[in-house]
Computed example of a mutant assay.
Amino acid sequence: MLRGRDALQREQALARAGSQPLQAWSAVPLTQSPDYSRRSVAGARPLGPVIQLGNSLLDEQPGARLLLPVRLADDSMLLLDLGWLADSRPQPALLLPPQLRGQWLPWHGRWTLPGARSGVAGRVDEVAMASLPQVYPGRWRQGVLVLQPALPGLQMWPLQPPLSAQRHFAYALQWAVLALCLLLLLRPRRWRKG
């Protein structure tokens, strides 16, 4: 149920933001949380190497989301989602245009197994978000700006959750019905006679 509620909130926030005009990043206070808004950013400069977030399936193909920590014109820092790259393709040259457009989303952590590689450079299984300010000291913005469109040679990472809220709710209902059936089958005989 909780996953369904989270997915529903994200779907609703994306729908609201999709109907709003593109806003300049310069008006965003440093303390503001990601609000799914569509933003334009000028003059972003890379801080370090690309982070390849592996194990990112898109249309059932293995690949990686390419993430880049950048410094913005106001000297704050932000993580950009440049797009998705299939494992079978070489990484293209990644040049940031002077003007970027994207949607500002909260960062969603991943479920990883023990031994997963966490980091802020190279190919990782999860981004060590808490380490970004240690590696790149300064004023960090929350969340990630998912570029729309993705950089040339990359595919845009979908903004919608992979499972809709309705599918989460249906799944929860299915388990509730199965549990009820199991309770009815396993109840003591004396309850059946009464």
Score class of each variant (00 low, 15 high):
residue 194 G to R: 13
residue 192 R to A: 15
residue 192 R to D: 14
residue 36 Y to A: 02
residue 64 A to E: 14
residue 169 F to N: 10
residue 91 Q to C: 12
residue 7 A to N: 05
residue 66 L to T: 08
residue 71 R to Q: 15
residue 147 L to M: 03
residue 74 D to Y: 02
residue 81 D to Q: 04
residue 147 L to Q: 03
residue 154 L to H: 09
residue 40 S to V: 09
residue 158 P to F: 04
residue 116 A to I: 03
residue 22 L to G: 05
residue 125 D to P: 00
residue 131 S to W: 06
residue 10 R to F: 00
residue 171 Y to M: 12
residue 173 L to Y: 13
residue 89 R to D: 14
residue 107 W to L: 04
residue 152 P to Y: 03
residue 148 Q to I: 06
residue 98 P to C: 08
residue 16 R to N: 06
residue 174 Q to C: 08
residue 74 D to F: 03
residue 143 G to Y: 04
residue 137 P to Q: 03
residue 102 G to T: 06
residue 159 L to Q: 10
residue 148 Q to M: 06
residue 139 R to H: 13
residue 96 L to R: 07
residue 44 A to V: 08
residue 150 A to D: 06
residue 44 A to C: 04
residue 167 R to I: 04
residue 190 R to C: 08
residue 88 S to F: 12
residue 111 W to V: 09
residue 119 G to W: 00
residue 19 S to R: 14
residue 186 L to Y: 15
residue 189 R to C: 09
residue 41 V to N: 01
residue 136 Y to I: 02
residue 26 S to D: 14
residue 60 E to T: 08
residue 126 E to S: 09
residue 51 I to V: 15
residue 148 Q to S: 14
residue 52 Q to M: 08
residue 4 G to R: 05
residue 137 P to T: 06
residue 98 P to Q: 13
residue 145 L to M: 07
residue 15 A to R: 11
residue 129 M to S: 04
residue 115 G to P: 14
residue 49 P to R: 00
residue 94 L to M: 14
residue 174 Q to H: 15
residue 79 L to N: 05
residue 160 Q to I: 00
residue 95 L to G: 08
residue 93 A to M: 11
residue 135 V to M: 10
residue 136 Y to R: 01
